[in-house]
C-alpha cells in the first residue's frame, strides 16, 4: 500500500506542469524515502530529475517500493481539477493498476473529489549520472532566470550562458539581430532571495538550444531561486531547491566542432 498526503495539491501540479512539454510518460518511483522521478526526453538532450522527500508530505506510507507509470497529460487533466489549496491524497495498492487521487477542499470540507488513473507500464531507462564538480555556479531568482530566457528566446534558437567571476551574461543571436542580458554578482543585504550569487573557479561559456532552456524555466513557480551549475563541455545542471527535495534538469550543451 502506498498513500501520500500533500497539504497543497498545487505543489504536485506545478511539478507536473513543468515537465508536460518535453516528457510524455514518466515513472514516479515511490519508496520509504519519498517520491522520485527521472525522465529523459526522446532526443536525449534534457533529463529531468525530481525528489519529494517524506517531509514534503503531511502523511506518508509506502510498504513496498513501487513505480507509478503515468501519462503526464492524463495526470494533468486530473490535477487541474483541483484548487491550489486542496489537500491531495495519492493512493495505490501494491499490485494494483490504478492511482487514486483524492482532493479535499480546505474551505469546503463537504466536498471531496476522487479520480482513478490507469497506470502504465513504462520501460524507462535509468541513467547513471557521474558525480561532478562544477567550476561555475550562478544562483539567481527563478523569476529573473525565466524572464531572461523568455526575452532572449525571441532573438535566437540558441542561448549562450557565460559565467565569469564578476558576473554572468546570457546571449542570443539570430536572423533579426542579437541580444544579451548581463547580471553582476551582488548581495542584496536583507533581500537574500533577490541576490545574484556567483561562484566561479574558472570562467565557463556554454551554448544551449533555447527551446530546452525554456523548459527548464517553467519550474520557476516551484521555488524562488534557481542555481545554474556549469563546467566546460559537460551538461549544465539546473536545480530548484524544494522545501523537502529538489527539481532539476540536466541539459546537453551545443559543442563547437
Amino acid at each position: 500500500m502506498f498513500e501520500a498526503k500533500l497539504n497543497e495539491a498545487s505543489v504536485f501540479k506545478k511539478i507536473v506542469e513543468s515537465v508536460k512539454d518535453g516528457f510524455k510518460n514518466c515513472n514516479f518511483d515511490c519508496s520509504e524515502e519519498g517520491i522520485s522521478m527521472e525522465s529523459m526526453d526522446d532526443a536525449h538532450i534534457a533529463l529531468v530529475s525530481m525528489k519529494l522527500g517524506v517531509e514534503a508530505f503531511s502523511s506518508y506510507r509506502c510498504d513496498r517500493s513501487i513505480s507509478l507509470g503515468l501519462n503526464i497529460e492524463s495526470l494533468l487533466k486530473v490535477l487541474r481539477t483541483a484548487n491550489n489549496n486542496d489537500v491531495l491524497t495519492m493512493r495505490a495498492e501494491d499490485d494494483g493498476d490504478l492511482l487514486t487521487l483524492v482532493f479535499e477542499d480546505s474551505s469546503n470540507p463537504d466536498r471531496i473529489s476522487e479520480y482513478n488513473l490507469k497506470l502504465l507500464n513504462i520501460d524507462q531507462e535509468h541513467m547513471s549520472i557521474p558525480e561532478q564538480e562544477y567550476t561555475a555556479t550562478v544562483t539567481l531568482p527563478s523569476s529573473e532566470y525565466q524572464r531572461i530566457i523568455r526575452d532572449l528566446t525571441q532573438l535566437g534558437d540558441s542561448i549562450t550562458i557565460d559565467a565569469a567571476k564578476d558576473g554572468v551574461r546570457f546571449t542570443a543571436e539570430g536572423d533579426i539581430g542579437s541580444g544579451s542580458v548581463s547580471l553582476k554578482a551582488n548581495t542584496n543585504v536583507g533581500e537574500d532571495e533577490k541576490s545574484i550569487d556567483i561562484a566561479v573557479e574558472e570562467p565557463v561559456a556554454l551554448g544551449f538550444n533555447s527551446k530546452y532552456l525554456t523548459q527548464t524555466c517553467k519550474a520557476a513557480p516551484l521555488a524562488p531561486r534557481v542555481s545554474l551549475n556549469m563546467c566546460k563541455r559537460i551538461p549544465i545542471f539546473i536545480s530548484y531547491k524544494l522545501q523537502a527535495g529538489h527539481f532539476s534538469f540536466f541539459l546537453a550543451p551545443q559543442i563547437s566542432e
Binding site: 529523459m40 532526443a43 536525449h44 538532450i45 534534457a46 533529463l47 531507462e125 535509468h126 541513467m127 547513471s128 549520472i129 557521474p130 540558441s158 551554448g207 538550444n209 559537460i234 551538461p235 540536466f250 546537453a252 550543451p253 551545443q254 559543442i255 563547437s256 566542432e257
Partner: peptide
Amino acid sequence: KSAQSSLLNFFSKT
C-alpha cells in the same frame, strides 16, 4: 559552427 551534444555522451544507461 556548433553541434548539439547528447546526454548519452555523458551519462550511461544503468
